[in-house]
Write a protein that binds this DNA or RNA. Structure first.
Lengths: 201, 201
DNA sequence: CTCGTCATGTTTACAGTGACAACATGGCGG
DNA sequence: CCGCCATGTTGTCACTGTAAACATGACGAG
């Protein structure tokens, strides 16, 4: 009658299940992403996450030192996806001014489409040793941004400021939309982004 | 020896303490702000907050339906402070282009100076009934922004887009700084903000 | 084949959290 | 004087992240 205890036990139903999972970690990350994609306020606790995979909660500690590390892994995957979306938008628009603008819009759209993942990805604070060889998933996104700015404004007096300006603009739009300060409206976003990113749309 | 139990009891030391606090709620909010100002990752739990005020944890439920409501109150105060800082920056700079720019910089500086409070203020999602007479603390800030844009660009083709553009820019900068994506550097911020807000600095 | 090793997963347990119900306190109006 | 009732307290619950001890089974050495 161990009913009142705060057990972390999971109920194994299928006798099929092997003792070792094969590739937990990957499975956990997948489950986490799925949970993030389903609902903005999706709460992902260790127990819930572990149950999704069909494993006991503490098993996750064999693959992540603590919950923070798990969230970091999810965040990194989020940045990776964002980078992919941006590169695709760039190429599909044929590069140049239109491509650069498309990149910015893709950034905001990603935030709108996957709010929880976007928020998680950027809310996670950068590690303290940030100077050196950061190989964050976000590196792709930022590299693309710099490249875009370089192509857009070859002789800009302050390329750095311009790049930061563009980034801050789309990031701000994304955040304001996520926090429901403003409503999602692709045309409006395009108009605002066009003010800085140039291009006619 | 009720030592192992998960009691919510607080240890009253002074016999001085009156049974009724007088003005809890205000005291709780003050304590919450103090806790937010001390450290970025300041954790504010009900028990800790209640202990600061010298009251039992569940007493807070007499003044706030739940923790969310408490956080909402703190968030509102944060927006209110932000609005005050912006108006002051505006007047101190003498209005006009310089004042508008100062307003933007004040926004980012506030985020840097009170990171936890800023984040809390904007992370709190707007209530669903957002259309009508929102009397959020943020109303001041946005009104100021619109006024600034109106003064700056009287005949702008798309004043709405310009206002949103300015807001998103400073909000994005603030968020990127909070999440340590970029470092706080007032000169750099001023340069970036100057690109949109005009003014020579 | 048998055995030991070792990564992986499970049990049990603990301290902490937000929240609710039942009870205590004491100021204020009839 | 007395009872009402807003305010504060005690006890308890379900839940969380996490650590320690234990179980399982794949795999290489003798």
């Amino acid at each position: 009658m161990a009913d009142k205890d705060n057990s972390v036990n999971m109920v194994r139903e299928g006798a099929k299940a092997a003792y070792h999972h094969g590739d937990l970690r990957a499975a956990v990350i997948a489950a986490g992403l799925a949970r993030l994609e389903a609902g903005d306020g999706a709460e992902l606790g260790l127990r819930a996450l572990a149950r999704d995979v069909g494993v006991s909660a503490t098993a996750l500690y064999r693959h992540f030192p603590d919950k923070e590390a798990l969230l970091d892994a999810l965040a990194d995957e989020g940045l990776r996806r964002l980078g992919r979306l941006q590169t695709r938008a760039w190429t599909e628009a044929g590069g140049g001014a239109a491509g650069f603008k498309a990149t910015g819009i893709a950034y905001v759209r990603f935030a709108h489409d996957a709010p929880a993942l976007f928020r998680l990805s950027f809310t996670r604070q950068m590690p303290e040793r940030q100077g050196e060889g950061r190989d964050d998933g976000g590196a792709v996104a930022y590299g693309l941004l710099r490249a875009g700015v370089g192509e857009m404004l070859p002789g800009a007096p302050d390329g750095d400021a311009a790049a930061l300006h563009a980034w801050a603009l789309v990031h701000g739009l994304a955040m304001l939309i996520l926090d429901r300060r403003i409503a999602w409206d692709e045309d409006r976003v395009a108009a605002v982004v066009g003010l800085t990113f140039g291009g006619v749309g």
